[in-house]
Design a protein around this nucleic acid. Structure first.
Lengths: 195, 195, 195, 195
DNA sequence: TATGAATGAGAATTCATTCAT
DNA sequence: AATGAATGAATTCTCATTCAT
């Protein structure tokens, strides 16, 4: 299993640093190799090509992102609380890894359509996790029963994503994690005044 | 004023077509020139460089997008209804211009950070329009008074954007305009069950 | 017609010089461009890729080679004399263009199978010319009537080719053109003692 | 003596198979090692470098080729018959080993000038064998006494080589061995009609 | 204004060879 | 003797931009 080889992770971590610091279009393979402390050719013992580095990077990081959120929400019975933990975790993971935030929110989106479709495949795992929480919440009566699952998920993900992206574009000047509470409240209550 | 010259629009329209049909990375200046029916060099009489074409494209299209929404919401007194009309118009504009939808939601996002920052400058006009509706709504008591304007705007824009992007990625298979009502309801009521 | 553009010929001539002097594997595009006095990119305005330069080179040179031999043999009624002129011309053309001799006899043969197949297509024109002389000679009774045309052509071409190659490998130390007479005699009389 | 070690032959045989099946430019050292069932590094215990494999391959195969022809012609008193047996054996050896035919007639010729010069050194043994037959034949009066030995040898070798190459390029569709008789006749009688 | 031929910088990838084990 | 992971040099081609006409 290649993922256990130390060099595999070493190269991926190097790619995150290089992309975050120099930007997607200035992240040459030789720069990544140098940062990883290996020869250019060594990269190709672990990755098919440059794109494969980026896909693997996303799979690896997004994989543990999803895992983490699954762990954190596991055992929670309330769907509302699950959603809260998801928002909280989503924000704190990015807040804790600024490099990664830049890479996923800005740099990797410059990749070509092909790569972005591959990335979307990985993202689907996260979207399904959100879907499950929504369905569960509807069944339990914690969420409105007339929700359209796909639209609701698009609201949740779209809001989280936009919030993180704005934070990154503002050079991470403010405390992202602190936004979890108000954002959660917005998502469940909406913006209209109560009746 | 260059924007009034016929070739200026001609080139921008050519760029939209070329990018929509061939993708951002296959949209070479020479291809755009050919589509516009002018020589490569002529492009540079109207635009500083390639990036300038894309920024102008976005300004031009986004400008009329914002204008249209301003016109539609003007004269409406209810902020809730203003929001509804904004959602409705946002979706119907993209539904009516599939080329443009592909270009703004997928292709132009592959541009580099610099260009994306410039694009965001243009977007700010739209975001401010949303902000005004939110502030107004809070003042009128139609929206909750404890809203964080920026977060609320991020929810609204993030949700609309994600919804349109998903629709484009699904090859515009379903009726986007029809989603205005449920999305509007989601945004104002949130997903939690009523009390 | 691209062949009339001066740069087309200019680049081909540069390729012959560079390949002859540096060898096939040291004939980088940039070296050819420099020799031709154009920018690297200019090459690609006239040729699809590097291989296309080599194919065009062969077509161009071989084309005029065949033309020349056709002209020289035209109007000659005797097939034996036609063969003699062919041998003579074959040798004198190479003797007059040492660079080209090195390129066709040694360097171009290092190209890959694909390129060599394309080159063989061009060669076929020459082989057919030889075939015509043989058939004609048999009809006139100047050549033995029991000849196998293909084998006879292989003997003629194989002998000429091997003779030129040996001469090139011996660094063109001796007078190639002077070999036309004995080689012609060999081809028509064979090596056995007369009866 | 390295040639007696089993792995030496094992690697050479592997090289023939790999080159015949994948072509010269796709015959990487690692592929040859895999086919031979040894590690990449092991190759370098038996060969100085990649070129050395190819030269050894040619020496080994050409060596037994020449030996076989020497054996077959030994004890024959007539030079004409010797030539006949040489032609016959030349063709039947290649007909019996299609892999080898592809390798020597097509693939190995793609090697660089340096390697081809080394290969020519090996070939010289064969050319000298032909020379001896010619000289002998002239002395005995079976061959014309005015032959130029070098040219005659070039005709003989050039014809055989061209015939085998054409056969290989035609995918060995016809019976090469059957060409021995007409080719022999051509070589001794030439193509002119008898007097 | 308009043209379009010419420019030239810049980067992913392969593979023969080494050497610590 | 044998291994195979690691090395790193080396080259084609694209395309935004210019400028003489």
């Amino acid at each position: 299993m290649r993922r256990e080889k130390p060099k595999f992770k070493q190269i991926i971590d190097a790619a995150v640093v290089v992309i975050a610091e120099h930007g997607y279009h200035q992240a040459q393979v030789s720069k990544i190799a140098k940062q990883a402390g290996v020869a250019d050719g060594t990269i190709y013992l672990y990755f098919k090509n440059k794109e494969d580095i980026l896909i693997s990077l996303f799979e690896e990081k997004m994989g543990s992102f999803i895992e983490k959120i699954e762990q954190e929400t596991e055992g929670i019975s309330s769907s509302l609380e699950k959603l809260y933990v998801l928002v909280k975790t989503h924000f704190s993971v990015f807040a804790a890894d600024p490099h990664m935030a830049v890479v996923t929110q800005l740099e990797l989106r410059q990749s070509n359509k092909e790569l972005r479709h591959r990335i979307n495949e990985v993202l689907k795992g996260y979207l399904r996790l959100i879907d499950r929480i929504i369905v569960e919440g509807m069944e339990k009566g914690e969420f409105r029963r007339d929700l359209d699952v796909r639209l609701t998920r698009q609201m949740i993900f779209g809001t989280l994503d936009e919030t993180v992206t704005t934070w990154v574009m503002n050079e991470q000047k403010y405390d992202l994690a602190a936004l979890a509470d108000p954002v959660y409240e917005l998502l469940i209550k909406g913006c209209a005044a109560g009746r």
